[in-house]
């Protein structure tokens, strides 16, 4: 029983971290229509920045600062913002599918940098000993994990609340206007590029926050945490849950990560040992199919976008 609780706490923490990344992506894609195929790049930047800021000094690495946890989180968000600004200025004017390819390429490049810039990132060895906040105050693993879940939940609620306010604000309405009909929005005097850039940066900041939480939760990051498949996972979460709806983004994270992890359990339980490899391939096929089926038959996701009307109307 305690085992199950302990696993669920762990599982939910991961879900919420992905959920936060999903909320960030939802701002970019769900509300603004900016296709970011490089989610993992900003996630990685957040995670590594956090690691570099908070980890204790290490003679082999140039910049371990050993600063407090909140500085790490804020630093991670700032670094993601800066990266998104640079990327955004260069790419936001591109047509949508070029932007997709450009961001995909950025994700590959960021991953290569984490792998090759050994003196900063630890290279392929990864980054160990990332401190977990307030870890000294808890004696049990479970009690600490429950605390961390609370922390991540608080972050999720904060991001959710902020985004809900943002998308209902005049600024949020402009974003949706651009998504629906850019020409019309431009005709109304809105600088579509500027708004898209703002949404891209803000979304990336949130994704960076998720990366920072990931690093401090697991206590270790390596370049192999940030393969393109992670982008795919986060996108699937958003599509399944329902893009354009923040609750959908969170629900999607729960369902998709649940399926990803649950189907692994199923394969391991049901299939005889000699078919395990095939089972694992079948598992990936199922996830891919789930995504395609959702897109074809339920494109709005489980909970689609709600019509959002300004408080000032009616």
């Amino acid at each position: 029983m305690i085992g199950i609780v302990s696993y669920l706490v762990f599982f939910l923490t991961v879900v919420l971290i992905f959920g936060i990344a999903c909320l960030g992506l939802n701002l970019q894609w769900g509300f603004t229509g900016v296709f970011n195929a490089g989610v993992v790049a900003f996630y990685a930047i957040g995670a590594y920045t956090h690691a570099i800021i908070t980890a204790p000094p290490n003679p082999l690495l140039i910049a371990n600062l050993g600063l407090p946890w909140p500085v790490g989180v804020l630093g991670a968000m700032a670094a993601a913002a800066l990266a998104a600004l640079i990327v955004g200025i260069a790419t936001v004017r591109l047509r949508g599918d070029y932007l997709a390819i450009a961001t995909f390429g950025i994700a590959v490049t960021v991953q290569l940098i984490t792998l090759n810039w050994q003196s900063l990132t630890g290279g392929s060895l990864g980054f160990t000993s990332i401190p977990r906040p307030l870890a000294g105050y808890f004696d049990g693993q479970l009690s600490y994990n429950i605390f961390f879940l609370g922390l991540v939940a608080a972050a999720t609620v904060l991001v959710y609340w902020a985004l809900e306010r943002v998308v209902r604000s005049p600024w949020g309405r402009v974003l949706r206007a651009i998504r629906e009909d850019e020409t019309a929005a431009v005709a109304l005097g809105k600088d579509a590029r500027l708004f898209r850039l703002q949404a891209f940066v803000l979304g990336s900041v949130i994704i960076g926050l998720a990366g920072a939480l990931h690093a401090s939760f697991i206590g270790f990051v390596s370049p192999f945490d940030f393969l393109p498949i992670l982008t795919f996972q986060i996108w699937t979460m958003l599509i399944v849950g329902g893009s354009g709806n923040n609750r959908g983004a969170l629900l999607g994270a729960l369902i998709v990560w649940g399926l990803w992890s649950g189907s692994g359990v199923l394969v391991s339980k049901v299939l005889p040992p000699e078919f395990q490899t095939q089972g694992a391939a079948a598992q990936s096929i199922l996830i891919g199919l789930l995504l395609v089926v959702m897109l074809v038959f339920k494109p709005r996701g489980l909970i689609g976008e709600e019509p959002v009307v300004s408080r000032h109307v009616g």
């Binding site: 296709f35 996108w235 199919l289 789930l290 395609v292």
Partner: peptide, 12 residues
């Protein structure tokens, strides 16, 4: 862009 995303799934 939805098509792009579907192609991600097809690829997998």
């Amino acid at each position: 862009l939805t098509m792009i995303f579907a192609s991600f799934g097809v690829a997998l």
